[in-house]
Structures are given as structure tokens and as C-alpha cells.
Design a protein around this nucleic acid. Structure first.
Length: 431
DNA sequence: TCTGGGGTCCTAGGACCC
DNA sequence: TCTGGGGTCCTAGGACCC
């Protein structure tokens, strides 16, 4: 038995916890560069704003409908997530933190009325963190996920689900005929693992709702589609195929990519950007105690713009697995030089660290670079300074030190304070 | 005229998830 | 004028190897 606890409109709810004036208003949170909407309040959804919709397409709603837009404040969301997760963990004996706003709970051995227990935990999360949640339960993770969707949709009163399924929904506790009715009222594209593409293929075969999907023989699914979709169908039929991952598996890659505030053309500007991305990725790598065996650099133009397109990446093996910013930055810049072509308007670049290895089992080697030991101390000091005094307090010279304008920097004009993680931003209550 | 089979590695891209 | 970022898994095709 599994539960899925999921924060409603999570980023918006985090902002509302500290600015109650945002309640009952249409609110969106924007991606980096204030590019597009990545979270929407119910009121914003009702205005017709789509997930991922570009801000320039809906910004007129600020004047017409009182829409409020905020730049993404990931420091705040990460901290609020930790708080929500620690309360949600009280629902059952095991927890897998699946994303910033979702966790699966293993309900094995939990006795009593699970729906009542769910409502109690939900109330506690709301009271202690200010985040409204929905909870779905079922015999498999895929069914718990589906139950969660039903709980949230019934709460918004937008679907055709019975009101008593709102907020907390346990599919395992439902009489078979009621369950069939609920599955029939749910489109296949709401199923975890069925995206746009597969949904269309299913629709073309006449399979539009979940009840129809559940009734297909898994072997047929495997033959016509894939083992991945077969697993999804078996899970929908109540056969557990996906277990709880309560210890997160080690990352296989770390990425740091950004779209630029405005397109850039020169190798000098790209070098600055790639230096910053490689430094950022290296800091992340050190934080999780890993080593990178390979590094990938990518650049590309904007597919949304007219004009010549160019997209290229290169993977460079490190001489030996490393965590050293200077080596990684040098490698990234050399990679960039190899793929850079003049005459293009570059919209995005990035650095990925690949072939990640456990830092604790570093391969011993004749020490050909005796300064490495000192480098380790240097990197640790660099991380401490940047953690304490803010990102980019200390950086490598190729990031650009001359005070020249970093025209490519992302824009975040609507950023809210870091209420919970920075003394200077601590909210003050007035009597 | 007729030109193998098995394997790895790399790049690129597609599909899905949040 | 203006279109996110971070992941995983899978597959196809080309280069290269024996």
C-alpha cells in the first residue's frame, strides 16, 4: 500500500505562506529569465494560463485580471519542501522523496482508517507549513499517483469525481463499481508514465480513458508499445512493479544549463558563461561528494528565432575523475573552443558532468600533479566562502572580473525574499 | 555479378518525469 | 521584443574494431 503526498501549486503556495495577500488571487511563478509560467494558482489556471506558457503571452492579464507574477525563488521552495517532507513522513513507515513537492509513503502495516489518517496528516502539514496538499493512496505507486490526481481535481471541483474523494482519496477502499466509474472518468494522459505522445497513440487505437487501458492484456501492450508501458498497465491493474526508493540512488550526471538574458555571439561572452556553469556544476558535485569522469559542453541557438540554427555538444574525458573547479573549467573552455562557430546568435549554453563516481573510492595513482592536495583545500575554502557570503563571491578569472557587463545573465526582476534561509530577509510580524 | 557478423563507443534525439 | 532547468532511460545511425 502506497500514498503520494503532493503540494498543491507548490511554488505558489510557498509564496502565499509569506504573503497572505496573494490568496484568492491569480498568481504565477516564472522560470529563470522570467521566461514562462512554471507554477499557477487555481485562479491563474482558471484564466486559461497553461503550464510552461511564455510570460509575454499572458502578461497582459496583469492589468486585465490582476494576475501577479513572481520570479522563481528556489532557495525558498527547497527549504519549504524540507519542512513539508518531514511532516509528511509521519503518514507511514517509509518515505521516498520523489520531487520537490511530492513524496511516496510506504503504508505497509499501518492500521485503522487510512483516509482519516490522511486527513490528519494533511491538516498538520497545512498548519505547520502553510502548504495545502492532496493525498492519494493505492496498492501500487501508479495507482497512488492516480488517486492523488483525483484528490486534487475533486478538491478543485473541476472534474466529474464525487466530492468525498477531495483532498484525500484511497482507491483501494473503493467498491469495484465505483472504482470503474472513476477510472472511466479519467483520461489516459493523466496516468504516470503516459505522456503526450503515447496518449495520442492510445487515443488513435480507441483507448481514451483509464478503464479502457486497464482492461488491455499486458502482453499486447508489450508487443504494441514497450515494456515500460506494460509495467504501467500492470501497476494500474494492482500488481506492484515499482518499489519504494527510500535511499535515493546516486546521481549519474549533474547539469548546469541556462538560457541567456539576451542572445550572445562572441566566444569571449560564451567563455564567461561556460566558466560560471562549470564552476556551479563543480560546486554541486563537491556537495554530494562525487568525482566526474567526463564533462559535456553544449551551445545552441534559439529554435524560436528565425535565422541560422546551430546546436553542438562535445564530451571530453577527464584525465582522471576529478572534482577540481580549475580542471573542470579548463576542460569546459577547451571543449567550447572546439564547438564554437562564429556568426550565430547563441541563446543557451550548459555544462554537464557525466560518468560520476563515488569520491570515497578514488582510484589511487602515481601523483603526477602534486598540487592536487593543495587544490582540495582551495576548493573547500572556495565553497565555504561562496556558501557563506553568496554565490560568486569568489570565482575563477575566466568568469570575467573586469566589471564588464554580463549581458547574458538571466533576468529575475520579480524575485521575492529568502524568508526562511537568510537573516536579512526574515519576515517581521507587526502587532 | 557476387562482398559477414559481432561488438563497442559516440552523438543526437526522443520519450518520459518533476 | 519576449519561450526554463534538471533528471533518467532508450534507440538509431555512423565510425571503428576484430
Amino acid at each position: 500500500m502506497y500514498a503520494l503526498v503532493d503540494g498543491n501549486n507548490f511554488y505558489v503556495s510557498c509564496e502565499r505562506a509569506f504573503r497572505p495577500s496573494l490568496k484568492n488571487r491569480p498568481v504565477v511563478v516564472l522560470s529563470n529569465s522570467d521566461g514562462c509560467a512554471i507554477a499557477r494558482s487555481d485562479e491563474a489556471k482558471a484564466l486559461g494560463i497553461k503550464m510552461g506558457q511564455p510570460w509575454f503571452e499572458c502578461r497582459q492579464l496583469a492589468d486585465e485580471a490582476g494576475l501577479v507574477a513572481l520570479s522563481a525563488n528556489f532557495t525558498l521552495y527547497g527549504d519549504m519542501s524540507d519542512r513539508m517532507m518531514s511532516v509528511a513522513a509521519g503518514l507511514g513507515p517509509g518515505q521516498e522523496i520523489y520531487s520537490i513537492d511530492e513524496s511516496f509513503i510506504d503504508m505497509a502495516g499501518v492500521r485503522g482508517d487510512l483516509v482519516r489518517r490522511g486527513h490528519a496528516v494533511r491538516e498538520r502539514i497545512l498548519q505547520w507549513t502553510g502548504i495545502p496538499t492532496g493525498i492519494g493512496m493505492g496498492p501500487t505507486k501508479t495507482l497512488a499517483k492516480l488517486a492523488n490526481f483525483i484528490a486534487k481535481t475533486a478538491d478543485r471541483k473541476t472534474g466529474s469525481y464525487p466530492a468525498e474523494l477531495a483532498r484525500v482519496c484511497n482507491l483501494a477502499a473503493m467498491p469495484a463499481s465505483d472504482l470503474d466509474a472513476v477510472l472511466q472518468a479519467t483520461n489516459v494522459d493523466e496516468v504516470w508514465g503516459v505522456g503526450r505522445r503515447i496518449a495520442k497513440q492510445l487515443n488513435d487505437e480507441g483507448v481514451t480513458n483509464v478503464l479502457e487501458l486497464v482492461q488491455i492484456d499486458p502482453a499486447t501492450i508489450r508487443r504494441r508499445w514497450s515494456v515500460v508501458l506494460e509495467r504501467t498497465v500492470r501497476e494500474l491493474q494492482g500488481q506492484p512493479c515499482i518499489g519504494l526508493e527510500d535511499t535515493p540512488p546516486a546521481k549519474k550526471e549533474i547539469a548546469h544549463t541556462r538560457s541567456f538574458g539576451q542572445a550572445i555571439t562572441s566566444l569571449a561572452d560564451l567563455t564567461q558563461a561556460v566558466t560560471e556553469f562549470a564552476s556551479g556544476a563543480a560546486a554541486k558535485l563537491r556537495k554530494q561528494g562525487g568525482l566526474a569522469g567526463q564533462l559535456l559542453v553544449l551551445v545552441h541557438t534559439s529554435p524560436f528565432r528565425q535565422g541560422p540554427q546551430y546546436s553542438r555538444s562535445v564530451t571530453v574525458p577527464m584525465r582522471r575523475p576529478t572534482t577540481d573547479s580549475m580542471l573542470l573549467v579548463n576542460t569546459a573552455v577547451r571543449g567550447l573552443q572546439a564547438i564554437y562557430r562564429p556568426g550565430f546568435n547563441y541563446a543557451k549554453a550548459g555544462v554537464m558532468l557525466l560518468d560520476l563516481q563515488d569520491g570515497a573510492v578514488e582510484q589511487a595513482e602515481l601523483d603526477l600533479e602534486p598540487e592536487d592536495g593543495a587544490r582540495g583545500t582551495l576548493m573547500a575554502t572556495l565553497d565555504r566562502l561562496n556558501d557563506r557570503f553568496g554565490r560568486n563571491t569568489v570565482l575563477l578569472a575566466s568568469a570575467g572580473l573586469d566589471g564588464k557587463e554580463r549581458s547574458w545573465a538571466t533576468r529575475q526582476s520579480l524575485l521575492t525574499p529568502q524568508y526562511t534561509t537568510n537573516w536579512r530577509d526574515l519576515p517581521i510580524a507587526k502587532a
